[in-house]
Design a protein around this nucleic acid. Structure first.
Lengths: 127, 127
DNA sequence: TATAACGTTGACGTAAACGTAAACTTGCTG
DNA sequence: CAGCAAGTTTACGTTTACGTCAACGTTATA
């Protein structure tokens, strides 16, 4: 008895177009139920979409997000590939670590840039 | 008397192709000196390239990286746009904050996924 | 001197991630 | 029941960020 969503429900909630959501389905990242032609999205579909978009913000491709989503549901894979999945997870972790480092560096540089701007503004006020 | 680099020096150091570096120049992100036809890259060019690639890892477009690089050199802009630049900086900060949050969430989920995998592997060993 | 090794400028190709338009069905609603 | 809103498929268009030749010039070294 879990909640259901229309395609435009999800489009509004996550601020994407319906075209985008259908595209993700065509790429095999979503597989909503159907009532006739019409797509019916479950809570699970909603979570998947959330994961896809989060991946996007972090610069992952759809193919990568697909892998991550597969990890999210370990029942679906066959057992032989579990070790391979663990390797993938480790890989993702390294990328995230790199991104964290990148973000810290960039934040420091933004601090400096802002300071220089403020200074330039102040100088302008005086001069 | 600052250090100089050839295009392939930089290509090797940052593991990109020379094509990529020339493309960044065509897009206005780099502007190396010339000795005849040949491009001569300064330390400043090297730093810019580093910034571009860091931006890429964080999912920024080249256009966005270009803006960030412009901030990096406040002398170049005219004074009237300084406040606008400060706004841009604030904007970038928000995105970085969002990315940090995304990364934390994703790391948690990777933790869970890994645990499920390990568990499944262990079950497999036993059963 | 020839033959790599490295550089250059076009110019066309391509993969990813959708946008956009056409042409259609279905379900309300005034 | 006319019409509009929301859904559908099909298919071509677009942008970004390069890859991949081709065709050529320059330097060094065997």
């Amino acid at each position: 008895m879990t909640k259901n969503y229309s395609i435009s429900d999800l489009a509004k909630e996550f601020d994407v177009t319906t075209r985008t959501i259908r595209f993700y389905e065509a790429e095999g990242l979503l597989s909503p139920e159907r009532q006739g032609q019409t797509r019916i999205y479950s809570e699970k579909d909603r979570v998947y979409l959330k994961l896809i978009l989060r991946g996007k913000r972090l610069g992952f491709s759809l193919a990568e997000s697909k892998q991550i989503i597969c990890m999210y549901d370990p029942d679906s894979g066959n057992r032989v590939q579990l070790q391979l999945m663990l390797n993938k997870i480790a890989e993702k972790r390294d990328i995230l670590k790199q991104q964290l480092s990148d973000i810290r560096l960039m934040q420091e540089e933004l601090d400096e840039a802002e300071e220089r701007c403020q200074q330039a503004l102040a100088d302008f006020e005086k001069g």
